[in-house]
């Protein structure tokens, strides 16, 4: 697009007889435009290198040492990694985190898709409803977590008592077998809007006439959903699943606000174990943990990149 605008501008200024002399100045101009873009990139590149790449590389470096975060250290080879793989606290944190991420991803996508279908159909007050459903996105996670902490610890048990629902009379936050559900629910509540927006965009790409044609052939709405809508937005589903899974793996503030890893260690996520390394001189060890965690998220990101690229080509 850039080249074409430049071309038209040169065409406009240059008179017809000089046309053969056109290529060299155009190349020059193109190069100048590119340099401007490089300048645009530079600040971000510098910040990214200083704030993310360099610390990440330093972290990986320290994961092969016995550093406590300051002072002298020695190289210990792969020791941190070896100890880590036999550390039940870390292994169970991975199990818990992956389990929660999977459950959340399923729930988020089911709810978001249902809402998106509802909000793209012919209903009243569509814009107002969309706005309302997007609201959770703008509230900070830790605030959501504290509000829900109060609801789960006080409101729900009180309501259960009034309604004589025995199971819910004790807060689920206090139950090591159920506390994870609260985390899935609250994370879902917060994550649905983003997924929903992507689905709304996806549903808008499905042409109306396909539905009309199928309706003439006598397809029921359910059949339309299964055989038209879902296949046509499959790319969006994939994106949502992968982006969501990657995000939910690093859940942190919602857990801190809801259960702080408890009861016991029932809801300690990987991010929380990593953070404990800063608090008490377990720096190098938790750097090894975060290196592994980084590799896992990197793999997911690469898969996502592949899929989205493939999608763009279609």
């Amino acid at each position: 697009m850039t080249t074409s605008t430049i071309k038209t501008s040169t065409d406009a200024t240059a008179s017809p007889p000089q046309a053969p002399a056109e290529p060299p100045p155009r190349r020059q101009r193109t190069r100048r435009v590119e340099r401007v873009y490089l300048w645009f990139l530079l600040p971000v590149l510098v910040l990214f290198t200083l704030a993310i790449t360099t610390p990440a590389l330093m972290g990986i470096f320290y994961s092969f040492t016995d550093s406590v975060g300051f002072g002298e250290f020695e190289f210990v080879g792969l020791n941190n990694y070896l100890v880590m793989f036999s550390d039940p606290a870390i292994l169970s944190a991975y199990g818990f985190t992956i389990g929660v991420a999977l459950s959340t991803v399923i729930l988020v996508n089911v709810v978001a898709l249902a809402l998106a279908i509802g909000l793209t159909s012919r209903i009243r007050a569509k814009t107002a409803l969309r706005t309302i459903f997007v609201l959770p996105m703008v509230v900070s996670g830790i605030i959501i977590a504290f509000v829900f902490q109060f609801i789960f610890a006080n409101t729900v048990p009180a309501a259960a008592q009034a309604l004589q629902v025995g199971v819910l009379e004790e807060s689920i936050l206090a139950n090591p077998n159920l506390a994870w559900i609260s985390i899935v629910l609250v994370t879902t509540w917060q994550a649905v809007p983003q997924a929903m927006l992507i689905y709304i965009a996806g549903l808008m790409t499905v042409p109306r006439d396909v539905y009309e044609a199928s309706a003439i052939d006598g397809a029921s709405p359910l059949k339309q959903l299964r055989s038209i809508t879902l296949p046509l937005i499959s790319g969006f589903i994939l994106i949502n699943v992968i982006i969501g899974f990657k995000d939910f793996l690093s859940t942190y503030e919602i857990i801190v606000g809801l259960t702080d890893g408890g009861p016991g260690t029932a809801t300690r996520s990987v991010a929380m174990t990593i953070f404990s390394g800063f608090e008490d001189g377990d720096y190098a060890y938790q750097m090894a943990n975060s290196t592994i965690f980084f590799l896992i998220t990197l793999t997911i990101a690469l898969i996502q990149l592949r899929i989205t690229r493939g999608n763009a080509r279609i």
Binding site: G261, P263, R268, S276
Partner: peptide, 13 residues
């Protein structure tokens, strides 16, 4: 040392 989640263990008990 805080890297051992002792408080959480206490809560668990």
């Amino acid at each position: 040392p805080r890297t051992i989640p002792f408080e959480n263990y206490a809560q668990g008990i």
